[in-house]
Nucleic acid binder design. Structure first.
Lengths: 167, 167
DNA sequence: CTGGCTGCAAAGGTTTTGCAAAACA
DNA sequence: TGTTTTGCAAAACCTTTGCAGCCAG
């Protein structure tokens, strides 16, 4: 698993975001920086609703609309990556100062393992040549069963998170 | 691009589906076989709504619920593959007697190119060994810009298909 | 100031569900 | 005949949008 970002990393990404916003004529609102900070303070994968509730917990409440808006901006400027692990829901993770990687997903418990293999890039450059295609990114997932008895008993991880509203 | 399946292929997949339904205690309804036939008569990628309207066109009308139900069964028995090319929508394609392949997707016009590279399977078996994970499948997409002036001018391909209801 | 941004709630698009009627086994 | 499955419509789910008010520049 990834380790949480250091304070200096947080300052770096804020600077990058600041610069991105300025260059593209977007405003630097406190909400946007709070979301960015929250993403880089923690670690791992999250969805928009996770972020909505995380923000709620900080006491600095933002609306879902702002969460979505900010995540879009962060994806656009490359500080956050968007993934489609399962159907019909986007997952996100921080992307700065964190190695490029892909994911192995357990169909039973939803556990996510990260890996990196340089052969992907070999394939990418081959495709690029053969098909005259400018490739800007990729997504590679392997699906299956993790044989981890500890993790894979908590199948509840895959359930709907409707309990989140309860707080 | 793929070529439409032959009549004999259609008979084969029907037989496979029949057997799957029987084995798993599902009923063999005409709706299910009509959907399967429609999938194998044509070629390429489609979403649930495409299939709903295709069925409508055949005169043998089925409900959306049945389309979704049948697609789930077909994915489960391996005759159809489900993809997440873009956010919030599943795409499908037939999977029998059709080579294993992955996809390159144009962000501008939505064009999809298929490719196959054996290195994916090398990566897969490596992951399998390292992480003690039983991998049952994968999904690999490359995203970028196709440099095809003919295709890439029809950007309308990516628009919402709200016009479909008009017929 | 003033146009972009926010929060809220309502709408949007895709998928799932509930229920009575139909139909497979 | 007894359950699945169907069709229909309503609900659920995630995401986007509309709008009045707010605030960064």
């Amino acid at each position: 698993m990834a380790t949480p970002a250091l304070q200096e990393t947080i300052e770096e990404v804020k600077e990058i975001f600041r610069s991105y916003l300025k260059t593209n004529g977007h405003r630097q609102t406190p909400e946007r920086f709070m979301v960015l900070e929250e993403i880089y303070k923690a670690d791992g994968h999250f969805d928009a609703d996770d972020m909505f509730f995380k923000m709620k917990d900080t006491g600095y409440r933002v609306s879902r609309a702002t969460v979505y808006n900010t995540l879009d901006l962060l994806v656009e400027c490359g500080l956050v990556q968007r993934h489609q692990f399962r159907q019909n829901q986007s997952y996100y993770e921080r992307a700065y100062s964190y190695r490029q990687h892909d994911h192995v997903i357990c169909d039973d418990c939803g556990a996510i393992i990260e890996f990196c293999d340089p052969r992907i890039f070999e394939i990418q450059s081959m495709i690029q040549k053969i098909h005259d295609f400018d490739i800007s990114g990729h997504s590679l997932h392997f699906y299956g069963k993790c044989n981890d008895p500890q993790t894979c008993t908590r199948k509840s991880d895959l359930k709907r998170k409707s309990t989140k509203e309860q707080e």
